[in-house]
Structure formats: C-alpha cells, structure tokens
Design a protein around this nucleic acid. Structure first.
Lengths: 202, 202
DNA sequence: ATAAAAATAGGATTAGTTTCCTATTTACCT
DNA sequence: AGGTAAATAGGAAACTAATCCTATTTTTAT
C-alpha cells in the first residue's frame, strides 16, 4: 500500500525526471500550476491532502509514464518483475516461424531478454526432457553455453530441441532427448535461429 | 497510465479476491458501505467518478494488498498474482526436511498451493531432467498423476526425483532419470512426502 | 544589473468525492 | 416459504481537492 508522502514524492520525481517543476508538470497536464504546491500538501489543520486519482492519471498520460514506472518512482522496495512475452503457436515454431506478430501473451516473472517467447509443446519429440503440454520460455537473444537446453531451427532438419554440446568451429551439436540423447550436429549456415530455454513447466 | 475503469475494476477484483462485495470491502476499510456502489461510479451528468487516492490507500491497507498486486489486478483481464514461496536448502530437502521455517523466499508468478517451495539442485542425481543449479518449484499439496515429474522422500532410499508411473495399490513407482529412466517402486509407508514439480529453470 | 518568466505561498470559491440517510432489491439462513 | 442481513440505488449534506486569483520569491535570460 502507499502513503500520502509516497504519492507526493513520486509526483516530484516524475516532474524532475521530465525536466519540470511540480508546477510545470501540473501546467503540462492541464491542471492549475498551483495544484501540486508544497504549501498545499497539508491542510491548515494538519491533515494530509491526497491528490486525486484523476490528477495522477493526467500527469501519467502527458508524460507517457506507465503506472508501473510511477510505482517504481514512488519508491517501492521491490520493482515489478512480471512481464508479458509472446506465446507463439507451436505449429508456427515447428516450421521455424518465431515472429511475434499478433501473438497471445504469456506473463512471466523472470529476467528474460527482448526476444523471449513462450510456447506449449504439442508433440513428444522433446521427451523425456519436456512432455506434451509443457510450456517452455525460451530466448533467441540469450547467451548459450555448453549444457544449456535449447531449441533450434535448422533449414534442413526443422525444429530440434536438446542439450547444447561444446560448439565446434562451424557446427552446433546438441543431444537429442528423443534419441537416447545421441549427439546431432548442424552446420551453422543451416541454423536459422537458436533459443535458450530458460524455464519449463512440468 | 490508468483509466477510471481500470481502478474500479481493480477495486471489484480486490473485493472478490478477499471474499467481499465492493460494499463489504468499503465497510472493512472504514468507508461508507455505499462508497463503491456501481450506481455512483458515474455522475448524473455522465462524468466518471474517480475514487480518491485516500480511499484506495485504505482498502490496500486493510487487505494487505501491495501496490504491485493492485497494479496487476488493475491492468489485466485475468488477475495474476506473484507470490513468495520458501526457497529451501537442498541439503535439508535431501534429508527429507521441507519445513519452511526461516527459509529464504523465491517469487513466483504461477498458481501454486500453500505447500509450494523452491529449491536449487546441488547434485547431478536428477540429470538429464534437471541439472545442477536448476531451480525447481514443487508442491507437496499438488495432485499427482501418472507422467508428472515429482520429488519424493523415502525413509529407506532418501530423496528421489523422476517421472510418476501409474500407482499400484500400496506402492509408488517412478522412473529414475539418472538410471536410464528405469522404474523404481517405493512402499507407501516408506514415503514421507511427495511433491509434484511445477516448473523448472533450465 | 535588470526585466520577464516561472515557481511558490496563501486565501476564497467552485467542483467533486464521501458520508449520511432512506428505500428497494438481493442473498442467505432457518 | 419467510425473515433477516447485506448489497445496491439514489438524493441531500458535509467535506475536501481543484481551480481561480493575488502576492511574493526565485529563476532565467539578456
């Protein structure tokens, strides 16, 4: 929850961040320039004045500040870490398509890069690591090391998933879970994309 | 930024989550029971009514709802809750201890029961399903079906993890990942606890 | 250094939210 | 089915935030 001071602090910080005084911020938002005067934050009888939600909405709107950012400015201890990533159709991913246009979203609470996506497995090709129905969170922008679990799309072989092996000069090798973890190599120039799997539902 | 509707929606959801009507929530917060009446959310001339920040602070306080949670409720059609669960020491879990006293916490954004906990794997006994360093989110209160991934503690055999098989009358059988997924059975009366693995980091 | 603009303090007025009150409807319990 | 409690609608009164206005102080630009 928040206090009266929290809100006023956030207003002051937002104004400062945007290069305004509190007075200037109010003016920008179409409010009276005296609206956020320090002198008016407590009434003559000592009771705190709470700025209205409508006024807050107005300043957030004109500064293009999200509510989340406003909370962060407000001084909350734990920054909000949830995020929406695209939930891609498995049928698309299986044929190599990982563009997120018009995708559903999936909310995560982990650190993931801008190229993170989620998908729901619809076959048993990744068993025993992942079963049908499992949700994977993967990121094509993530750094990949040996022993990481990855999805990759090869022009020649299609979608593959498994455990990364040490990469040779121009090939990528992974252990395939559905083939007793035997190693398979892919020439680099056949690989359209490779994504590290960050989390998996069970 | 937020809209008038967003706020009212959040108030309604918060009330519902806590088992109150909007009227009941207002009453709990020391406000008038009519404060959040639907009939009063738009004025007779059609202008939206914005609930005051003071009223909001009161309901957040009485419900112990964080601003973060309120934001989540506000911004989404389906409420998503982050939650902290105990992060247990692997050394404790390995010897069967899953009491959460004084444990560190781990924030999740998934549905999990009250008995959910997290742990970080510190050996290779669950390979290839899970490797050292992976975080597992598991729940001793979760319903378990065949093919689910589980952790169990047997008095005789200690901590085991693997894939649930069809349960026989008084035994529990799982496939052990570190033994080529061979099946191992445990008499029920030897099992102290069994937790379904919900999510795993990779 | 000077003038103009912006910011700030403070009082009065206006507008909007909350509270109080009453009546009706709905939900719950026996 | 009936009675009670809770929820909801709606109007009036009370309270409080926003706006308007004026004066003073501070900042900015030349």
């Amino acid at each position: 929850m928040f206090t009266h001071e929290d809100i006023w602090r956030a207003i002051d910080r937002l104004a400062e961040d945007k290069g305004f005084s509190a007075s200037g911020l109010a003016r920008q938002a179409g409010l009276d320039p005296t609206a956020f005067n320090r002198s008016k934050r407590t009434s003559p009888n000592g009771k705190p004045r709470w700025p209205s939600t409508e006024s807050l909405a107005k300043i957030l709107s004109i500064t293009s500040c999200t509510t989340e950012e406003f909370l962060l400015i407000m001084g909350q201890d734990t920054p909000l870490k949830t995020r929406k990533i695209p939930m891609l159709a498995y049928t698309a991913v299986r044929t190599g398509r990982i563009k997120a246009d018009n995708a559903d979203t999936f909310t995560i609470a982990i650190n993931a890069g801008q190229q993170a996506f989620a998908l729901t497995i619809e076959d048993e090709k990744l068993r025993p690591l992942y079963r049908m129905g499992s949700i994977l969170v993967a990121d094509t922008g993530a750094k990949i090391s040996s022993d990481d679990r990855v999805l990759l799309f090869s022009k020649k072989d299609g979608l593959k998933g498994g455990i990364m092996q040490t990469t040779q000069k121009r090939t990528v090798s992974i252990l395939l879970p559905d083939q007793d973890f035997r190693e398979m190599s892919f020439p680099e120039n056949e690989i359209e994309w490779i994504a590290r799997i960050l989390w998996a539902s069970q």
